[in-house]
Design a protein around this nucleic acid. Sequence first.
DNA 1: AAACTGGATATTGGATCCAATATGGTCTAC
DNA 2: GTAGACCATATTGGATCCAATATCCAGTTT
Lengths: 224, 224
Amino acid sequence: MTAAIFSKPPTAQEAVLAEMRRLLVTGELAPGTPIRQEALADRLGVSRVPVREALKVLEGEGHVEYSAHRGYVVAELSVEDLVEVYRLRELLEAEAIRVAVPKLRAADLITLEQAAAEVTAAGKRADLADVTAANRMFHFLLFDAAGLPRLSRTLRQLWDATDVYRSVYFALPTNLQRVNDEHDELMAALQAGDAKAAIAAQAAHRAHSVEAVSNALTTQPLVG
Amino acid sequence: MTAAIFSKPPTAQEAVLAEMRRLLVTGELAPGTPIRQEALADRLGVSRVPVREALKVLEGEGHVEYSAHRGYVVAELSVEDLVEVYRLRELLEAEAIRVAVPKLRAADLITLEQAAAEVTAAGKRADLADVTAANRMFHFLLFDAAGLPRLSRTLRQLWDATDVYRSVYFALPTNLQRVNDEHDELMAALQAGDAKAAIAAQAAHRAHSVEAVSNALTTQPLVG
DNA sequence: AAACTGGATATTGGATCCAATATGGTCTAC
DNA sequence: GTAGACCATATTGGATCCAATATCCAGTTT
């Protein structure tokens, strides 16, 4: 059986979830706006049931806030939240890299190289969605190599929380260039098996993006 | 209006969620068992809808695993998982305490003292549920004092994940006594404003429980 | 005997309908 | 004119019904 690996979501709730994530990242669902279940369901061509289940997932991830009988509102992300998320990432990503580096094999390094190249390629195509996806893939290839599923899971949550701002960051060509340089630096440390240097590289990488995003956040609060 | 602070859940899904948490902690819903939505709904006197929404929340927290069209299964917690959770707690609780200690005021210390006393009191009453609840309250009073909501949230998830085993731990009187001693030690460090000592006390506290629980886990795998 | 095909059944996924609650406006009383 | 009560309406919460999928078993074929 030559069946496709996977193409369409097998359930409506997954489709809804995927689409809502897109709406949140692109800002079509702006922070602070209440979510009308029926309107959303109509728009997506389903009933309210799968919408509600998707919303429960997003609530758990902190993307929407819920109040009984009053419904869901797209969560706001303040500068303090952003800083906190990055601080937590600092602690956890250091741990992931510390554990992962000694475990990396030649094959892993090749895969990582390819992933980094994919980020560059997407950048040249100026495809923001692809850049963010490829960037995430690159970093989580590394994190997942630690073999600590709970840690990966927690890191994913933290990344998800600030996804909205990642595409903003990648929109500037200078940032795009810098990210590629930083990835190269990180790769060099990984290839040298130098966990400490890798952690430092990742830290610098984060510091740049948190600075850029929090600047953007304070000057023009993204949507109204 | 002198309305009660809070008494009964305003929605069925919350009631279901609370009851399911209880079933999970007490082991009435044992790891590995499939969850039949209709049976559970009947047992709780509601329809399947609120059950499904509660399950989505529990899925997000990692308490149950989901497969499309096949349903939910109570998640298994392996020794590796347990160790991983405690390692992550180590990293994050240290941060919470580091930030919280300088912020603690006299009133906070009094509240913490009272919470610690409540753990002791519940222990004397031999009420396991109360002990675990009071213990959790005590520790999160401290963590929350850091004023980092995302950190608190993540820590809660980690605590939740291993809640099943906490009551097992408290079941032994020797552990109960040790916990009280360790709380005293932690309180002393907090009162002295010594973050480093507090972090060390918390670390010792954790180390004891992870050791005890993982021993229990390897010898008699809790349910069959 | 083993493997595949087909269908019966149990269970989940989704849609629709009804109930309960919150919200906004209007009317009345002072 | 303002405050409070009350009612109309929009929206969420929950129950029931139907559809889709997976699983299991029998039957058949090689």
